[in-house]
């Protein structure tokens, strides 16, 4: 069964591309940026093929149907995204575990690159990405104020939102 449409894989591919672009050095970074721009300007309706070769092993409902009472179907979701680099097409695997409230409990990124700069970049990306979803819900904190930027969803949030939408019962 497929838990991710090609459009969702595309979103994750964009996330991988733009975040990796931030981690790269000048020359390659520029090209990665270009790739990202091209992706961003293409419509999300372009869902059939973005060069994404995916082995879809999504397994929703690993919770054996235990937590279906909430808004979301708890479980572990997996998607594989691909992106183009000067060294060829690369891919990363992203695992997201959510609970029935839609809270992301864990994110695991598995680098798929086998050679070249992509290995280093993907490892950095994988090391860093778990930090991107840690944090606590502000609603649950005893605070008087919030300092930061209320912002529209960036690429990563868009991908996460897609995953949550997918998981909604």
């Amino acid at each position: 069964m497929s838990s991710f449409s090609p459009a969702r894989r595309w979103l994750l591919a964009v996330v991988a591309t733009s975040t990796l672009a931030l981690t790269t050095g000048c020359g390659i970074g520029q090209q990665a940026d270009d790739t990202s721009s091209a992706d961003d300007t293409s419509s999300s309706t372009e869902s059939t093929d973005t060069g994404s070769s995916s082995t879809d092993e999504g397994t929703d409902d690993t919770g054996a149907g235990a937590e279906t009472g909430g808004t979301y179907t708890a479980g572990e979701y997996e998607a594989e995204g691909s992106y183009d680099t000067p060294g060829g097409t690369q891919s990363v695997s992203v695992d997201v575990t959510i609970d029935a409230e839609g809270t992301i409990e864990a994110v695991e990124v598995t680098p798929q690159a086998e050679s070249g700069n992509s290995v280093q970049f993907q490892n950095e990306f994988a090391d860093g990405i778990a930090d991107e979803v840690v944090g606590q819900k502000i609603d649950g904190l005893s605070v008087s104020k919030v300092a930061g930027s209320s912002l529209t969803s960036g690429g990563f949030n868009a991908a996460i939102d897609e995953i949550l939408a997918e998981a909604q019962a």
Partner: peptide
């Protein structure tokens, strides 16, 4: 107490 909003 001031929450530091997650940038992403």
């Amino acid at each position: 107490r001031v929450a530091l909003e997650h940038p992403r």
